[in-house]
Simulated scan of single mutants.
Amino acid sequence: MAGWTADDMPTMEDRTVVVTGANSGLGYEGTKAFAQKGATVVMACRSVDRGERAASEIRHVDGNADLDVRECDLADLDSVAAFAEGVREDYEAVDVLCNNAGVMAIPRQETADGFEMQLGVNHLGHFALTGRLFPALRASDGEARVVTQSSGAHEMGEMDFSDLQSERDYGKWAAYGQSKLANLLFAYELDRRLDDHGIDDVRSVACHPGYADTDLQFRGPREMGSSLRMAGMKVANALFGQSAAQGALPMLYAATADDVLGGEYVGPDGLLEMRGHPEFQQSNEASRDEGDADRLWAVSAELTGVAYDFETATIQH
């Protein structure tokens, strides 16, 4: 694994990969790397226009890139359902699902379904998407993988089931930390449930990018209208951030490397796990709390209306 780069990825020919947030940052770099290895990449984007511009940029570099831009707004469960239905209709299987898109440290707002935005986009939208694409993942003729992007910020997260939507008390960083902890609880619980049902052809893996210089850091200051915070973030990214291409490596490793097992957590190997090449890591104790994971799963199924049927790999409504 030492020094692993995207060049070390195996061929992805005849493989279908779904990437959320594929038009920018980590999703864009991941999409480009998958496509360069021969995959068909379904680019799940909130904005089709931005997605098409990103696809054009990738095709300019790689004229053979097989890219399919589709609308998927994780802040709207109807959009998630329509996207998943379209993918299931048009593709025989999904081999890799990268739950990558996210928002970070934004002023409190709600999704179309009334969820706190960070929890709604980062966790609940991906919970629903994974469930609705589960039959397509089971249909893979190889080993399918679900890769969920978390963050080192999960360590400052706490699952507050008494105020899950932060209606009584909202702190933008606390809500972000909770959403990233939820990502890990989901990834590990999905792995356990797959194992409990004897499903060994789908693996659930988690990853984090370290500190990557992407647009993610700027949405909060932009929505606050704070030019001072924007300037400060630009300086921080320039000093501490690694490139988005480097930050995407843990996701790519988790999605493709032969030695990845279900329930793994992959991140950068450098100082404070902020930069570097992929390695297996350990997330905090809270992320391994099986009681919280089971409770979060039940709440997520209730809130999204998506119940995974591991017996028949169909969606229950």
Rank of each mutant, 00 (worst) to 15 (best):
M9T: 04
A245E: 14
K37F: 05
G210I: 05
L190D: 01
A54W: 00
S283Q: 08
Y188C: 02
S162W: 06
M12V: 02
G267N: 02
L26P: 07
G120V: 04
G86S: 13
M12F: 07
E158L: 11
T40K: 14
A35S: 14
R46H: 10
L124Q: 10
E143Q: 12
G232N: 10
R59D: 05
L129V: 06
A286V: 05
G125C: 06
K172F: 01
T314L: 05
L249F: 04
L67T: 01
V69M: 11
L228T: 12
E155W: 04
D141P: 14
V96P: 03
E311P: 15
K172T: 03
G142H: 10
F83K: 10
S243D: 10
S204P: 09
V17L: 09
S287F: 06
P221G: 07
F186N: 09
E52R: 15
G86T: 08
S151R: 01
R108N: 02
K37G: 03
H60V: 03
T312L: 07
F218P: 06
S162R: 10
H126Q: 12
I58S: 11
A231I: 01
R88A: 13
H277A: 13
A298F: 03
Q316N: 13
L124W: 02
A187S: 15
T111I: 07
R222H: 10
H197L: 08
W297C: 06
V205I: 15
A2C: 03
P209Y: 11
S204H: 07
